[in-house]
Computed example of a mutant assay.
Amino acid sequence: MSNYLLCCDWGTSFFRLQLLRYSDDQCVGELIAREGIAGTFDAWRKTGAINGLTREHFFRRQLRQQIQVLAQQVSVDLTKVPLVISGMASSSIGMEEVPYATLPFALDGSQASVRYYEAQPDFPHEMLLISGVRSQQDVMRGEETQLIGLIALLSQAGVGTTEAIFVFPGTHSKHLYVQNGRLLNFTTYMTGELFDLMAHQSLLRESVEVSSLTTFSASNKSAFRRGVRQATTSGLLNGLFTTRTNQLFETLTKSQNAFYLSGLIIGAELYPLLTQTDWPLVICSGSRLTAFYELAIDELTLSARTTILPAELIDKAASKGQMLLFRNQTVKETTR
């Protein structure tokens, strides 16, 4: 058994590789790159496939390069250290497509859909590829592993999570309905992607100043709250055009209007939670989005039933889930 485990969270547009100490789950090294699954897949189609490389071999080669960089950073020989990967690597544009797990999904990891690979001469790492979860009309890859790790971390801290909606903000935000140790359902909102499209590629790009979104002045926060309220009254589609008229009529500055647009879109995402009155809410954001969601939660008067988890806890969730799934797999292999 290796003293370490390599944990890789490989998303559409980012790559994160961590080296964890197996005995205590502590991270002893990390590498973050912009070489996401989408770019890697495109590179394989343009160069690897033409040169006769299989998709799996091309992805392994990319992984080996990143592992070598991390090995140099931490001054540790990572040969034969096992590797666990979650995220988009198991998708149709990943290393190999692995079928989704289905609902209800046990959060001890026992129902996870995984693919195990033995070490190869040119890739001396046994590897576990974790797939995602699907419902009748929705899919996700990566968040289920984060959720498994998060539930375990909360349990270790003595925090009960019998029933709650876990909100994972992001490009494609997820609302995960958890009850009695199982994921029952989830919904996806294209929150971040819609904001990016509207702010950079639509008619509204001339009406907002996105660079101001780090300045939480009183006037900017007021504009954000106004956007949240707009989402609950006239709705998203009309509210989007109001972003244009805010600037035309000089109701808001471009900086304020960027906050207004953000509030409008986040407000539209969170608005359905007003009807979920029996569910506590847990905001799981390890990024700058936390401040925006806090403000929206307050404006929607949802604060009384909302817990906002600290960023450092969210940061550990994916690798914790990967570690648990690898241990589960190891137990299965040894009992066969």
Rank of each mutant, 00 (worst) to 15 (best):
I37Y: 04
N185T: 04
V139C: 08
L264C: 07
S92L: 08
D138S: 13
A49N: 09
L270C: 06
Q230F: 01
E193R: 09
L203N: 07
F166Q: 01
T47V: 11
R244A: 10
G181P: 05
Q72N: 15
R182W: 05
V76C: 12
F105I: 04
C8P: 00
A106V: 06
R305T: 03
I85M: 08
V81M: 05
P121S: 13
A49D: 10
L313G: 03
N3E: 14
P169K: 07
F123Q: 01
W10T: 00
L213H: 07
G48L: 06
Y4W: 14
G149Y: 02
L107C: 05
R21C: 07
I85Y: 03
I50K: 12
G87C: 06
L17T: 01
P99Y: 08
T161R: 10
Q136R: 13
L129F: 06
L70Q: 04
A199P: 02
V74T: 13
S131G: 14
S92W: 01
L273P: 07
S173A: 15
A106K: 11
L5D: 02
I165C: 13
T301I: 00
S135D: 07
F123V: 02
L261S: 02
A119T: 06
A317S: 15
L5N: 04
P280E: 10
M127Q: 06
I32W: 06
L261N: 01
E163N: 12
Q179D: 09
L20T: 03
M1H: 12
V228E: 03
T232Q: 13
F168C: 07
V159Y: 03
Y100D: 09
I265N: 00
L248P: 06
A152S: 12
V159G: 01
L281R: 02
R64M: 11
D122V: 00
S222W: 00
G39D: 13
V139L: 14
L324K: 13
S212T: 14
T251D: 12
I148T: 03
S110T: 09
I93L: 12
A164Q: 14
Q65K: 15
L153C: 02
Q62C: 14
E96P: 04
T54I: 02
M1T: 11
R64K: 15
L295S: 13
K46H: 13
L103Q: 08
T306V: 01
S23A: 15
G142P: 02
T242C: 13
N238Q: 15
V81I: 10
L252C: 04
Y117I: 02
T214L: 14
L325A: 07
Y260N: 00
F58M: 08
F216Y: 15
Q111E: 13
M1C: 09
V139Y: 08
Q201V: 05
S285Q: 10
S285T: 13
I37A: 09
I85H: 05
S319C: 13
D108C: 01
Q329H: 13
A218V: 11
I165W: 01
G87D: 06
V167E: 01
G29K: 07
Y22Q: 12
V84M: 04
L197E: 11
F186H: 05
R34K: 14
Q66F: 11
G36R: 04
D24A: 09
F15R: 00
V159M: 08
I32V: 14
Q179C: 10
G142T: 01
D122C: 08
E193L: 10
T214E: 15
R134G: 11
G160P: 02
M1P: 12
Q111H: 07
D122S: 12
L63T: 00
F15N: 04
A106I: 00
D196E: 15
L6Y: 01
L313V: 14
N257Y: 06
I308L: 11
